[in-house]
């Protein structure tokens, strides 16, 4: 009698494992490996090129407690950790948070994110609710609202730069109507520039939010609407008291998606203002890019990028717990 031998675990599903190699490599090398690398090197004094973490010199010298020394190249006292020849503890982060350009970037991002979130959620939902009224030409409206989303943020930035151009655009037209002192040059005004970008960003993104919301609305049991009509609830009240609470998951998901997208905002600003005037429309992604590739201060760029990652995690982790933590218990 021949005994059927159980195939080794390793070789079961071999084709599937083979097919998954790109995924495994991407997950491990790129998403885990590169993130860890960036994180580690954000604690180094890497300039143009990454500095080796340990040099032979380190073998012969005792790493110094950082709170004792003052580094020549960084005008700060290290607060924590030990330094080697390249390892500088939290120095890059100290410097980051005392850099006015970074602080401007964070302020800009917060401003942009706050307005963009509220605006695109409210407008997106209202448009979706109106689209859900069994209207005619629904497809036409949807096509119009969504086409900007198909285009590059570069295009969005450039076209709105043109429309907001004070010499030729809206300002000129309104002045032409007789309002000689009308001023509308958000992209040239450091105080308003983020709103100029907001106009373009909302233009591009709201259609997408509308589509998500509309899908959410269509997912609501039609009997709910019937029940509320029989109860004699006005439509607006049904939306506020019944439908919106029911769409909570859609709102949360949308919120996470918009926020994650906003943190990455880069192309749009590059095209529309390139961070100007001056440094007034800088965003974190731009800060990272310039320190990594032009200012030749790798450690600083990586520290900034790590802060961006932290920002994403702050949004992502609670969301994951709410969204998936509950499900597993069931």
């Amino acid at each position: 009698m021949e005994k059927a031998s159980r195939p080794s675990q390793l070789f079961r599903n071999l084709s599937a494992k083979f097919a998954a190699i790109p995924m495994v490599l991407t997950a491990l090398v790129i998403f885990v490996g590169c993130t860890v690398w960036s994180f580690v090197y954000s604690f180094t004094r890497s300039k143009l090129l990454p500095k080796p973490l340990f040099t032979t010199e380190d073998l012969f010298s005792i790493p110094m407690p950082t709170w004792l020394i003052k580094d020549g190249s960084f005008d700060v006292y290290y607060i924590t950790g030990f330094v080697t020849k390249s390892f500088v503890g939290m120095a890059q982060y100290d410097r980051l948070w005392s850099n006015s350009r970074w602080l401007t970037s964070i302020e800009n991002l917060a401003l942009y994110a706050g307005f963009a979130l509220v605006f695109s959620l409210v407008v997106g939902f209202i448009l979706a609710a109106f689209m859900d009224q069994k209207i005619r030409f629904e497809n036409t409206f949807r096509t119009i609202y969504l086409y900007p989303y198909a285009m590059s943020a570069i295009i969005t930035g450039l076209v709105w730069q043109w429309i907001l151009n004070p010499t030729f655009g809206i300002e000129k037209i309104v002045r032409g109507w007789g309002f000689e002192n009308f001023e509308f040059a958000p992209l040239q005004n450091p105080d308003l520039v983020m709103f100029g970008i907001l106009i373009a960003g909302v233009w591009q993104g709201t259609g997408f939010i509308m589509a998500l919301m509309l899908a959410g609305l269509r997912g609501i049991d039609e009997d709910i609407w019937k029940a509320s009509r029989i109860d004699g609830i006005p439509m607006w009240k049904t939306y506020i008291k019944v439908v919106i609470p029911m769409m909570r998951p859609v709102f949360v998901t949308t919120l996470v998606l918009i926020t994650a997208g906003i943190l990455k905002v880069y192309d749009l600003v590059v095209a529309q203002t390139n961070g100007g005037p001056g440094l007034s429309s800088q965003v974190p992604a731009m800060y990272v890019y310039s320190y990594l590739f032009t200012a030749q201060n790798l450690g600083q760029g990586l520290a900034a990028s790590t802060m961006m990652l932290l920002g994403v995690l702050i949004i992502l982790i609670p969301w994951t717990i709410i969204e998936f933590g509950g499900k597993e218990k069931r």
């Binding site: 960036s38 900034a304 990652l309």
Partner: peptide, 15 residues
């Protein structure tokens, strides 16, 4: 990991 990777800001990974 792959799905969460989609949320990692590109700026972390580009260098």
């Amino acid at each position: 990991i792959l799905i969460f990777g989609a949320f990692i800001p590109y700026q972390v990974l580009i260098y």
